[in-house]
Amino acid sequence: MAKNNKFDKIINIRNKKASFEFEFLDKYKAGIVLRGTEIKSIREGKVSLTEAYCYFRGEELFIKQMHIAPYSLASHFNHDPVRERKLLLQKQELRKLQNKFSEKGLSIVPVRIFINDRGLAKMEVALAKGKKTHDKRQSIKEKDAKRDLQRMAF
């Protein structure tokens, strides 16, 4: 007898642009404060992280420009697609991030959003440093070489 789990659909939405634009130094898993129908849209996979960025307001971490599409089956009580959302981290992680964020050239970038085994939406954020043009060229070369090796294997 198979166990029926309502969270069988795996949601793992990545920000591919971030790995090309930034070099990740540290990664953290954070909870997200959501309203109403936002979790239903996330479970449908209707999230875009390409324009999103994180910033501090006081002692709290927020994400801005993360687009969660309105839930299709909702009425007029739907959510605002690009509102800013609070990220939930432990105090010591927030302090560590805030200290490093104040350094010149470092950013906090959303890497991926996923649903954990308890059905909660989580986000992986990274402390990142922007890549230079020659670093981007190097990552393109590595990606091409990897693709060529995979082609030769088949």
Results as ranks from 00 to 15, higher is better:
Met1Gly: 11
Lys3Ile: 11
Lys6Ile: 00
Lys6Ser: 04
Asp8Asn: 00
Ile10Glu: 00
Ile11Val: 10
Lys17Ala: 13
Lys17Thr: 09
Ser19Arg: 00
Glu23Tyr: 03
Glu23Trp: 06
Asp26His: 11
Asp26Thr: 10
Lys29Glu: 09
Lys29Pro: 04
Gly31Leu: 06
Arg35Ala: 14
Glu38Met: 14
Ser41Ala: 13
Ile42Cys: 04
Arg43Thr: 05
Lys46Tyr: 14
Val47Phe: 13
Glu51Pro: 03
Met66Asn: 00
His67Gln: 03
Pro70Trp: 01
Leu73Ser: 13
His76Lys: 12
Asp80Ser: 11
Asp80Tyr: 13
Val82Pro: 06
Arg85Glu: 03
Lys86Gln: 09
Leu88Ser: 14
Lys91Cys: 09
Glu93Ala: 12
Lys96Met: 07
Leu97Val: 01
Leu97Asp: 10
Gln98Gly: 12
Asn99Ala: 06
Lys100Ser: 04
Lys100Glu: 08
Ser102Val: 04
Ser102Phe: 10
Glu103Met: 09
Gly105Ile: 06
Pro110Thr: 01
Arg112Cys: 08
Arg112Ile: 02
Arg112Lys: 08
Ile113Arg: 04
Phe114Ala: 04
Ile115Thr: 06
Ile115Cys: 02
Leu120Arg: 05
Leu120Ile: 05
Leu127Pro: 07
Lys129Pro: 05
Gly130Asn: 08
Gly130Ala: 08
Lys132Tyr: 08
Lys132Ile: 12
Arg137Gln: 15
Arg137Val: 14
Ile140Arg: 10
Asp148Leu: 13
Asp148Phe: 08
Leu149Lys: 15
Leu149Ala: 13
Arg151Ser: 14
Ala153Lys: 13
Ala153Val: 14
Ala153Asp: 11
Ala153Cys: 12
